[in-house]
Design a protein around this nucleic acid. Sequence first.
DNA 1: TCAATAGTGTCTCTGAGACATTATCTG
DNA 2: CAGATAATGTCTCAGAGACACTATTGA
Lengths: 218, 218
Amino acid sequence: MGWTDEHGRRLTDYDRPSVAVDVALLTLDAGGRLAVVVHERTGAHARGLPALPGTFLHVDGAETLRDAALRALRDKVGVTGREPEQLRVFDDPARDPRGRVLSVAHVDLVGHDRIEGTTGVLAPVEDGTLPYPLAYDHDLVVAHALRWARDRYAAAPDPAGLAGGEFTLLELQGVHEAVEGRRLQKDTFRRRVADGLVETGHVRAGTVGKPARTFRRR
Amino acid sequence: MGWTDEHGRRLTDYDRPSVAVDVALLTLDAGGRLAVVVHERTGAHARGLPALPGTFLHVDGAETLRDAALRALRDKVGVTGREPEQLRVFDDPARDPRGRVLSVAHVDLVGHDRIEGTTGVLAPVEDGTLPYPLAYDHDLVVAHALRWARDRYAAAPDPAGLAGGEFTLLELQGVHEAVEGRRLQKDTFRRRVADGLVETGHVRAGTVGKPARTFRRR
DNA sequence: TCAATAGTGTCTCTGAGACATTATCTG
DNA sequence: CAGATAATGTCTCAGAGACACTATTGA
């Protein structure tokens, strides 16, 4: 790399920060409540508060941020096949006691079924706050992720597919209530999402009351 | 820095990327059209296409991304007193031929008066495209910045204050048409912004026709 | 039959969009 | 006065929100 800048120096003559990625992976717990996947750090070299799955960007090998985020999900909580989205960079110089570490926060939403059997731990996100603090500035990351998810769910019916492939309107409404963090009115909700749904022709039978029709996302 | 990770290594044992900030500073040119501030790079060590004002993050001294963005604006185009906002990270491994450089793109909107007399050059952003290509992936940055600006201007009247402190509704409409990139209907526009404005009590006199009342943002 | 859940008709309110009209200035 | 620009009355349409009613099932 023989390039020099306006002062005649090479890139590597300057001090560089470490760059990490952290992923706020949101999901619903068994009770249908919004939660974020964290991992307990119990090793000899990494103890302390639970943290979001994260890792350092591997510069050798030209890894992208997206690939690093996928690697963190796989290695830290055993989740694969996701498509995390960039949220923002957290750059408080004091955010990591080990040195100057920028964190490129990512966010994704995943169905509960993809979490089961993994090493991830669910931390409920009750009205925007966690039951215990997270490591580094990860509480802040979760707060941003939550706003991102709410914006997306306000704009389209279940964009992440948390309700699964086929669902009744009431099931879909439950997912939206969990993510958006507020109760919704069923008739208003139905009309809001109707355009984005296709009827499957099936019904959800075997319950008390009138069986509900099921839908797919368009 | 004695901290070690789960593999017993220090942070600085890993290869780290260079981190740059680039700022898409949007403004209106003399004709009231949307433009982005670029600078020509004519030095011996940096020739080529015009680029957005940018710089490398200074890790020594614990510089934040925001401070680096402000420094880039001051040193590269002579603009001060702004509040750039983070847009996203561009991380294509091939985006900079000098090596692995992540760019944290920022965006800001500034009144034309703050650009006059600076070393910046205005590149018009005609319906989202530039008249000539920019260095690196800066065309992509501008495209994202434009979307950001349009979203903000769709939500509130002139959030960046491009119209100045006191303006007529038609002047405000001209600013919004330039940023949003479409013609607006005056009566619809007036009602849309009315809530966010306060009447000054003055009128814009000395023109032909009925003098217009002037407003301030609330 | 009743209890429970699903689904819809309809009313109000708000805001965008558009057309046409009225108001007030300069020359 | 004419011409130009400012400002607004009013109509339509669409969507959110809410209430109440009807529909269909199991027990």
